[in-house]
Amino acid sequence: MSEVAREVPGLPVPKSGARKRFAFLLSLTLLGLLLLLWVILAISTDSFATTGNFVNLMRQASLWTIIAIGQTFVIITAGIDLSVGAVVGLASTVVAMLLVAHVPIALACLITLAMGVAIGMFHGFAIVQMRLPPFITTLATLTALRGIGLLMTGGQTIAGFPRSFGAFSRGAVLGIPNLFWMVILVAIPAGLLLHQTRWGRHIYAAGSNPEAARLSGINVGRTIYLAYIISATLAAFAGILTASRIGIGVATTGDGWELQSIASSVIGGTSLFGAVGTVIGPVLGAILLTTINNGANLLNVNPFWQRVITGGLIIVIVYFDQRRRRRS
């Protein structure tokens, strides 16, 4: 051992798999924090530990989780997707208009998802081909897509869905809300894609060192397309689920959700500098944020404090991320 180790010069020997262990520890910490919050809320309020509230919490968390997972793919490539909230709004409008026009539910959902794919492709095109910074690209589509939604509806809400569409989001299988099943449906393939396939490695590589990635034979442009398509498609999916949940199509749905998704992702350990992140992270991050919001409501905390708490949490997490980077 010592004979081998002696050859390593100049620098302390980092312990094996330090990065993965940090991710694991962070997940455990978040999980612990989440359970602690749940226990505290269950003790301090009468209504938290009720089935109704819990189901409601899981439904709300589901929507944020799904967009946070997409956001994570983008952030790992060292990008950012500010448009997800707007995509949620537009998708809920589009699916609503299709349903009201008596398009079959499955087809309406497919068309809406295809729109998400198209938006993601446009982001990829702007970033890869036109070489626009991701921040600017998605900031532009954030405002433009909101505008398109409002133009399509004239600012009106769209109501009159088939009953079964709305019933889906209220239903449950094996005691778990359907919406949360959708999280599982998204998170497991996303986790496999990110952690177990070469495409996943390509995403990390593109965020870590794009030139080295290119010279290692990775098609960096295609990888960036992939990340933005995943993000926009999952946002469109969340838009469909939102429409189902609230029973109407409103162009302004999902206002500010881009920040919720970024916060969930970052709280879950994704580094805004790219190349670091997991799928379990944003899941836990989104549930934690939802719990804070839900608990604050139940405790009659001024809802404006929720924003302050979220901001504070981001600063603490990013600070620890920075410290870890400086050490390594």
Binding site: E211, S216, A275
Partner: peptide, 21 residues
């Protein structure tokens, strides 16, 4: 990328993925 592999001279810029094992 299809037929070639490259050994970079400027390790930091073109070669290493710094966070990877």
């Amino acid at each position: 990328a299809r037929t070639m592999a490259m050994v970079a001279g400027d390790r930091k810029r073109d070669g290493v993925f710094p966070l990877w094992s």
